[in-house]
Design a binder for these strands. Structure first.
Length: 487
RNA sequence: GGCCCUAUGGUCAAGCGGCUAAGACGCCGCCCUCUCACGGCGGAAUCAGGAGUUCGAUCCUCCUUAGGGUCACCA
């Protein structure tokens, strides 16, 4: 077994979006396999026909692709165990279940759905009781009678009534459960489809999955799976259960915590690489190494199961922000220009602007791409002016000084023929010196006049360039009029 | 409620019987600086509680407490 090639699988159900928890499972499944030169398999679990969502499978493909989690076998690329979609594997399940029936390890159950479902879901009296096993010991004649009536049925596994089932999880250690806690689980549903529980075991066995990696919400049902493996005489896989991801309030991460799907996060302008890097660290740490920025390839080299923690981790948007910033910062200027283009184009629309300069002032200031429009909206249209903008203690700027500075600068800049950073900078510095003002005061008068804001990305000079001479002078003039009328 | 799991700063966490208990995010302060950022430096902040075991417990055991998960013809 130890020499066997490691095979893991990501087995999502096509629900229409990729939840962060699912993606984290996929990532760890990938890493468990790839860190040991193994194979990573994608399998679609669509046994619940009532929940199939159009286009959901494509979202799964797209997400894995943009995260770099390439699989060695899967529905769209095939493989030795095709098909990789459970609904196309129907013939793989029934005969296995019937074999168990023949061997007396499973039985037909004719009880109504209502009976078994209502009995077990939340009872007002807070009682939780499982299926009463009333069909467990039907006689052959009774079964034949039900069958000839055309009654629908499910196939249930006969669980042992006594004893305990234990297994060793690679993260959580030994887990033991009393068999009497386990109910006679349904293997085949009345629509003929296998349950997830059953299909999962059959597929994992047939696809030779060696390491089952999944969230710890499956921990307590794992003994049921093991009992199935044992009933078939199949080898039980290694288990690696992952700690849960919680929302900031400590409850299971869900929509009310904000964006919780990969697609939502990308839409907000988080880079896939940053998301992957961050969720790799949710529930795992590389031990002595204090680095945090890891590419997927580096994770493949560093990852080990020993680093997985048992306690649940809280998903922190603040930390994700930091990761995203790190990835944004190390982009080359050209890459960054390309990346923000859709957002900046949206603001400038038909106006010409200098994308490279804009990118330069944004790159160290951007947390996530979707923040950009608000940060630069004033380039399109300045915010309304307020007199407070011209009252700055540190630079000793007041409205009177503002009037003087603007008056001087409008005249001078109008005559400045070389509208470039260097030339404007030289002029402004000279002006500050000549007029006996601090540069901060001059710039302090320009910033709000050009933007209507006291805080802007970049400095006054960059704004002058991006806005262009004409627009700049227009805004400065408007600001001067505002000050003259208000002050 | 039964069963299962978890417990180091606000968050992610290193630690795996002996340490002034790493590091990161966030927060605060200082420096840099035309604002804000970036960058640099510094600071506050943690072993849930109680019994054991041991010469010695963050680390091992038990109990308590607090969280979480699970009890479907959903995955």
């Amino acid at each position: 077994m130890s020499n066997r090639i490691v095979r893991t699988r990501f087995a999502p159900s096509p629900t229409g979006h990729m939840h962060i928890g699912n993606l984290r499972s996929a990532l760890y499944e990938y890493l468990v396999a790839k860190s040991q030169k193994g194979k990573f398999i994608l399998r679609i679990e669509d046994t619940d026909q009532e929940r199939v969502v159009e286009g959901a499978v494509e979202i799964i493909y797209r997400t894995l692709k943009s995260c770099g989690l390439t699989y060695d076998e899967g529905p769209d690329i095939g493989g030795p165990h095709a098909p990789y979609i459970q609904s196309e594997r129907r013939q793989h399940y029934l005969h296995h279940a019937e074999r168990l029936v023949e061997e007396g390890k499973a039985y037909y159950c004719f009880c109504s759905k209502d009976k078994s479902v209502l009995n077990s879901v939340d009872d007002p009296a807070d009682n939780f009781h499982s299926y009463d096993r009333s069909c467990r010991n039907l006689s052959a004649a009774e079964i034949a009678a039900h069958l000839s009536n055309g009654e629908s049925y499910v196939i249930r596994q006969k669980m042992p009534l006594t004893g305990t089932t234990k297994f060793v999880d690679e993260v959580f250690g030994e887990i033991a459960v009393e068999n009497k806690e386990l109910e006679d689980q349904v293997l085949i549903k009345s629509d003929g489809f296998p349950t997830y529980n059953f299909a999962n075991v059959v597929d994992d066995h047939e696809m030779e999955i060696t390491h089952v990696v999944r969230g710890s919400e499956y921990l307590s049902s794992t003994p049921k799976y093991n009992l199935l493996y044992e009933a078939f005489g199949w080898e039980i896989p290694n288990y690696i259960h992952l700690p849960l991801i919680l929302g900031e309030d400590g409850s299971k991460l869900s929509k009310r915590h904000g964006a919780t799907s990969f697609g939502d996060l990308v839409k907000l302008g988080y880079l896939p690489e940053a998301i992957v890097n961050y969720i790799a660290f949710l529930g795992w740490a590389p031990g002595g190494d204090t680095r945090e920025i890891f590419s997927l390839a580096e994770l493949e080299n560093t990852f080990s199961v020993e680093g997985i923690s048992k306690s649940p981790a809280i998903f922190s948007y603040a930390k994700l922000d930091w990761f995203n910033e790190q990835y944004l910062r190390v982009l080359s200027p050209d890459e960054f220009v390309e990346m923000i283009k859709p957002y900046t184009d949206d603001v400038f629309i038909d106006k010409v602007y200098d994308p490279a300069l804009l990118a330069r002032i944004l790159q160290t200031r951007t947390t996530k791409l979707s923040d950009i429009p608000d940060m630069i909206a004033f380039f399109r249209q300045a915010d309304p002016l307020h007199i407070e903008l011209y009252m700055q203690k540190r630079s000793k700027l007041n409205p009177e000084a503002g009037v003087e500075i603007l008056t001087d600068l409008i005249a001078a800049l109008t005559n400045l023929s070389d509208w470039t950073e260097n030339s404007i900078k030289d002029y402004l510095n000279a002006y500050a010196e000549d007029s006996g003002r601090k540069a901060g005061q001059v710039m302090g008068a320009l910033r709000p006049s050009l933007s209507g804001r006291s805080v802007t990305p970049g400095g006054a000079i960059e704004m002058l360039i991006i806005l262009g001479k004409e627009e700049s002078l227009k805004r400065l003039t408007a600001a001067l009029h505002f000050l003259q009328q208000t002050a």
